[in-house]
Design a protein around this nucleic acid. Structure first.
Lengths: 139, 139
DNA sequence: CATACTGTAACCATTGTAGTCACATATTTC
DNA sequence: GAAATATGTGACTACAATGGTTACAGTATG
């Protein structure tokens, strides 16, 4: 893995929990499906646990499960939990003495806000349950 | 600068060219406003030149200018020129023997495509001229 | 020819992410 | 209670992307 695939991996892992909603899944199980290291999964799911999306139990027969029904977990919840910040980033330095540079800051903020206002509703509308529905029948 | 601010810097630089549309701007001029190194600007504008968005001339009195009117340069054109790939990225590895993992690929692709279908029209609709219009009157 | 530009290679520093090992802690099972 | 099985997390390595910088070849102007 090279690029930032945290969101994709999170959705994959959570879909797995949603499909097997009656058994706990271990980080090893999930890592097996995602083809990565269990520690990577534990770190990612730790963030999702802090966001109230999953629950974990230690010890034998332990593992992870969803903390709420799949139709109450939106992609936006997941995104917020695992990715920080916005889709676009401004350059933080600029020449404060340049009038254009100073105005660009607000203009770019406006552009980014407009784009985000298109994306967020789509992410909020889609839930884990929708994705699981697309899978067809669970294994 | 830490994060990926190429798109923001590109918009900043191009706005500058749009505002001063009768004089060529040098990479040094632009770097002065953006507060970065001229080479960084030249590298970025070289990509925009390949995309047909700016033109450059070498030598004394040389520099950069827009290759077409500001109302014919959309933010989408700029984005395509300076950022590669999509907004979201999938994890490329997965357990090919796991039925869920295999289906996740298509499901994620669908999700990402839906989000993109919300973003692209917004980027295509907005032009450099729109941004320059927001600046108020040029210096 | 001197000057003033772009284009680009080369290199360094920084940062973010993934991957890995190790281990403290918690829970179940026997 | 001891053994087995989990999570949570610190520490470390490897790697890729980005930005910043220096240097220089090529090119246009006057």
């Amino acid at each position: 893995m090279a690029a930032n695939s945290r969101f994709a991996v999170a959705v994959h892992a959570l879909s797995m929990l949603a499909v097997h909603k009656d058994e706990r899944q271990t980080s090893r199980d999930i890592a097996g499906s995602v083809a990565t290291n269990p520690v990577v999964i534990r770190r990612l799911l730790a963030q999702l646990a802090r966001a109230g999306i999953v629950e974990s139990t230690h010890g034998a027969k332990g593992g992870f499960r969803l903390a709420k029904p799949a139709d109450r977990v939106s992609l936006h919840d997941i995104y917020k939990a695992v990715e920080e910040g916005a889709f676009f980033v401004q350059h933080e330095k600029r020449n404060e003495k340049c009038p254009l540079a100073c105005r660009m800051q607000k203009i770019l903020a406006g552009v980014f806000a407009r784009v985000e206002s298109k994306v967020l509703p789509e992410l909020k509308r889609t839930t884990l349950a929708d994705l699981v529905g697309e899978i067809g029948l669970p294994a």
